[in-house]
């Protein structure tokens, strides 16, 4: 188990380096550091001196990947890439272009993100699985047909419709909740309600259908026939046998997402102007703030890898056959 974890963590290092390299090249292959400085200082009328000064201030005056003029190891280390990437492995994300500390910013913005993402995730999971189990129970009947058709229609509706429609109905028409915004403490509930509801709604069709497929696949297996041959009721078969076994494919898809909940949803947050990590990222991209984007990408992929490890560990709980090697 411990050997396994260590191996997974070691494997994470090349992946994180790869991710960094990718983001880095995305920013610097198309646009040079000069372009970035010009963008930050205002497109027009920038003197070359001002650009140089900005670059120096923000540490972009070095070569990109390889410093031919430096000595020894600093041929690699004295570059923008190395300087900006290496520190991230110890969670030193540096500061954004407007001078704020990124790590602190992430800390304060994490809570609103979680306040939306976690309930969406949990409530969603509950509803989707319940709905799917119901369809499985009534499989091959008119009810099942109805459920599946409903799922297909729901998944064909654009998520934008739910957002725009939801905001319109709940806030404008009925004045239930504010359209957007966020407040801390108990106030947050009224701000969180609508995004969560819409988030759950948005994928009810696709998810329920997916879970149903998984349940149906399990229900066709031999052990289910054995369970029925024992004289067990269909409900018990469904909950005690099918659900337990279906947890294996379900966990594969679900657990990997849990760590990413910290990242928030980029889209939901920007639609509802919630000061979470998602909207932070979108704003940073719009402002060409490389530091922030790089930090968020790094954080995202780290959480993703954590999710993979978590998935493997969760297998050991539901599947006795899995021993981590």
């Amino acid at each position: 188990m411990i050997a396994y974890l260590i191996r997974r963590l070691l494997y994470a290092i090349p992946i994180l380096i790869g991710v960094n390299l990718l983001t880095f090249s995305l920013f610097f292959v198309v646009n040079t550091a000069d372009d970035m400085a010009r963008m930050q200082l205002g497109m027009k009328r920038v003197t070359p001196e001002a650009i140089e000064k900005w670059k120096q201030q923000h540490g972009y005056d070095k070569p990109l990947l390889f410093n031919a003029s430096a000595e020894g190891a600093s041929k690699i280390s004295d570059t923008i890439f190395f300087q900006k990437s290496a520190k991230m492995f110890v969670f030193d994300f540096g500061s954004s272009n407007d001078g704020r500390n990124i790590a602190r910013e992430i800390q304060t913005r994490m809570m609103p993100s979680l306040a939306i993402a976690l309930p969406t995730f949990l409530i969603g999971l509950l509803i989707y699985i319940t709905f799917a189990l119901l369809m499985t129970f009534f499989r091959a009947t008119a009810l099942d047909m109805l459920g599946v058709s409903l799922c297909v229609v729901l998944m064909s509706i654009s998520g934008l419709f739910y957002i725009i429609g939801g905001q319109f109905v709940a806030s404008k028409l009925w004045h239930w909740v504010p359209i957007s915004g966020y407040a801390g403490g108990f106030d947050s509930i009224k701000f969180v309600l609508l995004p969560v509801l819409i988030g759950v709604m948005g994928s009810v069709g696709a998810s329920s259908r997916w879970y149903r497929t998984i349940f149906l696949e399990e229900i066709g297996k031999d052990y289910v026939r054995t369970a029925r041959a024992k004289g067990l009721s269909e409900l018990r078969v469904l909950f005690h046998h099918v659900l337990k076994n279906a947890m294996i494919p379900i966990l594969t898809a679900v657990v990997v997402v849990i760590p990413l909940l910290f990242m928030g949803s980029l889209l939901t947050e920007s639609f509802f102007s919630i000061p979470g990590l998602g909207s932070y990222t979108i704003d940073a991209i719009k402002a060409q703030d490389f530091g922030v984007v790089r930090a968020m990408v790094f954080l995202g992929s780290m959480l993703y890898i954590a999710g993979l490890v978590l998935t493997d560990i969760s297998y050991t709980i539901v599947d006795p056959r899995v021993r981590l090697k």
């Binding site: 991710v19 990718l22 983001t23 990413l260 968020m296 990408v297 995202g300 992929s301 993703y304």
Partner: peptide, 9 residues
């Protein structure tokens, strides 16, 4: 590497 970056990002 590619799939570990959130795709929207």
């Amino acid at each position: 590497v590619l799939s570990s970056i959130p795709s929207v990002l």
